[in-house]
């Protein structure tokens, strides 16, 4: 899609890489506004900032392989952090990381334009069928865990909700904070756009509470915000608002709610610990997909992600595998 053609930024050298934003909020804006693609390269320190494989005179590796990595916006910051850390250890490898959404990444993997697709949901059956029609058997890797936090304005007296209450709020059954123990204020519903993986996950697991036969939908009054930043901007300034987003994207000026599976519940606040021990009810796995069994550099990279790479996961607000 020409609308989303990424701006190419060529970065070389560790010091330059340090300028890549580490904080999720800044990265969100950057991701949306400026660029989807960072090509990270470390081959040859002192090399000019140009896409040359190696400096003249230096013994260039026979094949400098670029690992193309594309997909979920939820995963993009984590994937970038992994790529930066990995090429610091393995200078002969190049990794390019692009966002664009889970669907985009999987489609690109099926078409053979990327090596690794990032996904915030498991592949759908029709996507697997499409891949098989293309002669590709996708291989799934669970690379991290993520929790979806429900957020409100810091001044909101409500501290906790059950999944059922959240479902009723988002379907428009409950329209006033009074009904869930808050002030007498209308509820303003905020959601990500319908093409976001987070939207689908929230609908299936919170609004429909995992019931495959349910046909509940978001209330038509739900405000669909084009970015995480749109949600946090509105939650920050509107005491009526309720929103949801990935744990890694929640800024300190929003108040997270404790969530219980039902009224008997324990109410649990989202955090790395509560997601890991399974007590927080709205959490999910994050995936990477390769076209068939990976080999060579791609295999080595994925092994590294599932091993030492997990140390980076909590720094970005996600939940490591172990």
């Amino acid at each position: 899609m020409s609308l989303l053609r990424p701006v190419h930024l060529w970065l070389a050298g560790v010091k330059r890489l340090a300028a890549v934003p580490p904080s999720p909020t800044r990265a969100t804006c950057l991701r949306r506004l400026a660029t989807g693609l960072f090509l990270l390269s470390l081959s040859g320190p002192g090399l000019a900032c140009r896409p040359q494989p190696a400096a003249p005179g230096q013994a260039a590796p026979a094949s400098v392989q670029t690992i193309e990595n594309k997909g979920s916006d939820t995963l993009v910051n984590l994937a970038l952090a992994w790529a930066e850390a990995y090429i610091a250890e393995q200078p002969e490898v190049r990794i390019s990381v692009t966002g664009g959404g889970t669907g985009t990444g999987i489609a690109a993997m099926i078409n053979g334009t990327v090596d690794i697709a990032n996904a915030s949901r498991a592949m759908k059956d029709e996507e697997i069928t499409a891949a098989e029609a293309n002669g590709i058997i996708p291989k799934e890797f669970v690379v991290a865990g993520d929790a979806i936090a429900v957020v409100v304005h810091p001044s909101n007296p409500v501290n906790q909700l059950t999944l059922g209450q959240i479902s009723d709020i988002y379907t428009g059954e409950i329209t006033n904070w009074r009904e869930v123990g808050g002030a007498d204020r209308p509820i303003v519903l905020l959601s990500r756009e319908s093409n976001s993986g987070t939207y689908v996950y929230f609908l299936e697991n919170v609004i429909r509470q995992g019931d495959a036969d349910s046909s509940l939908l978001f209330s038509p009054d739900t405000l669909l915000m084009p970015s995480s930043e749109g949600i946090s901007a509105e939650v920050r300034q509107n005491p009526n608002a309720i929103g949801y987003d990935g744990l890694g994207y929640v800024t300190p000026d929003q108040k997270m709610l404790a969530v219980a599976p039902d009224a008997a519940g324990p109410y649990v606040l989202p955090s790395v610990e509560t997601v890991k021990d399974g007590s927080y009810p709205i959490s999910r796995a994050l995936y990477m997909y390769t076209a068939g069994e990976p080999a060579g550099d791609i295999r080595a990279y994925l092994d590294w992600i599932l091993g030492p790479g997990q140390a980076l996961v909590p720094e970005l607000g996600f939940v490591p595998l172990y």
Binding site: M1, L3, L4, G100, G101, G103, T104, A107, E193, S194, N195, D221, L223, L224, P226
Partner: peptide
């Protein structure tokens, strides 16, 4: 004085990820 969705915003918001 309520939210609304326009045709242009719909195209822009959804075109990015549509197959």
């Amino acid at each position: 004085f309520r939210p609304a969705r326009t045709m242009t915003a719909t195209i822009a918001a959804e075109m990015g990820e549509v197959a």
